[in-house]
Design a protein around this nucleic acid. Structure first.
Lengths: 220, 220
DNA sequence: ATCTATTTTTAGACTTATCTAAATATTAGT
DNA sequence: ACTAATATTTAGATAAGTCTAAAAATAGAT
């Protein structure tokens, strides 16, 4: 069975919205995410339910079926692999990436995506730190952690960020932090959860708001 | 203005069918190419005409407008650039390439395609010898060479002739060779410099006197 | 427990791209 | 030039995805 782009986008949206609340996803939440009307969502949910891609009961919200989840995860795999390609090989940066990957993720060829995966060296994380599931839909063990959770004393490395505003990016740049930058976590101050790190011999302070948006490696 | 995938495919089909007959393209030819019905084609032609992408008059066939041609050429650019990527970087071969490129060609991002072009080293021809137009829609000058100098094994095309006698012209006609005819150079016989070519499934012998008077494409 | 506000669904309509079947125009053969 | 064959267009229907407006269900406040 095959899905339209629209159906795939609904499945992906349901997947993402399900992550942070193990209740079913509400029609309105989905409508907002999809930038459409609640009535349109209801129509689509009926269609997806008929295809057994979601579990849907009137007024009760929706969850993904096994099949629906597989499809959603596969789209995420494609999206993230394309992001790696765009960022690491085509020199994309910032916002453009996401927009283009949104289109590329719907290209429908197992061969293509497996070869792309190989070309990229079987990456386990995208440049924003998002884990990339393998061709069977299995996510890698996360051996990354947000900087606000790392133990004091560790030597570590920037693996990704979870905030992509220009303001944040330029702030990081000024601090000397970018993807792959190695540094040492010296101290954490409990009263505001800010941290002190050392990179390239310089000591730098990072607020909690900065630290919580930085993924760092947690090697063993 | 923006086009749907379907509209883009129609424009591309009209472009391709226009290449081989400078009359307008017939509804039926288009229907066959698009694997659809003539009535559907008529509907679409009206739509494209309303958008000023084609010149269409009832029963008179269709041609591309300037705008329509730009779009068609841009799709061909994208298609061929993706083919280069798939073949040279992802290790694709043969038929799969075309199918996947058919999907990729509709991805809609100037930035993406310009960066891909750069990544690939601004190729002028795809791996099948198809010329790749630049970002302004300009095709590269086709390099020409006399058939007696072409390397054995090449797929090529008649680009011109240097002898214009009736005798020569009618000889070519009988052999099935005319301007634009595609063929494959199978073998060259050293003792008389004659060549063996294959066109439309037929194997044909050409003497050196014939071969030296035919310009063929040499898409390096 | 009831009434109100919110959420969700239904009903009916629109658009895009398609189809079949019937009508009309063009072309070719004599 | 006329008819037969072919090509093309029209008319009316269908399916996907969307919308607005109205009805129905659920949740919240007292």
């Amino acid at each position: 069975m095959s899905q339209s782009f629209t159906e795939e986008n609904y499945l992906k949206a349901i997947y993402k919205l399900s992550r942070r609340s193990d209740k079913g996803v509400s029609t309105n939440a989905l409508a907002e995410r999809m930038e459409t009307k609640a009535s349109s969502v209801t129509d689509m949910l009926k269609k997806l339910a008929a295809k057994k891609l979601v579990n849907y009961e009137k007024y009760q919200g929706v969850t993904l079926s096994k099949k629906g989840q597989q499809i959603a995860v596969d789209i995420i795999r494609k999206h993230r692999l394309w992001e790696v390609f765009l960022l690491e090989h085509l020199g994309f940066s910032g916002e453009e990436v996401h927009q283009v990957a949104e289109e590329l993720e719907h290209i429908n060829s197992e061969t293509l995506i497996d070869r792309l995966d190989k070309f990229l060296g079987y990456p386990k994380y995208d440049p924003h730190g998002g884990p990339i599931p393998d061709s069977k839909g299995v996510f890698p063990e996360p051996k990354r952690v947000k900087l606000d959770e790392l133990e004091v004393g560790r030597k570590t490395k920037v693996m990704g960020i979870t905030e992509h505003s220009d303001a944040f990016l330029s702030h990081l740049k000024k601090l000397g932090l970018e993807l792959g930058t190695n540094f040492h976590l010296k101290e954490r101050f409990d009263f505001d959860r800010s941290v002190e790190i050392e990179l390239n011999g310089k000591t730098v302070q990072l607020s909690y708001d900065v630290a919580k948006n930085i993924f760092v490696s947690h090697n063993s």
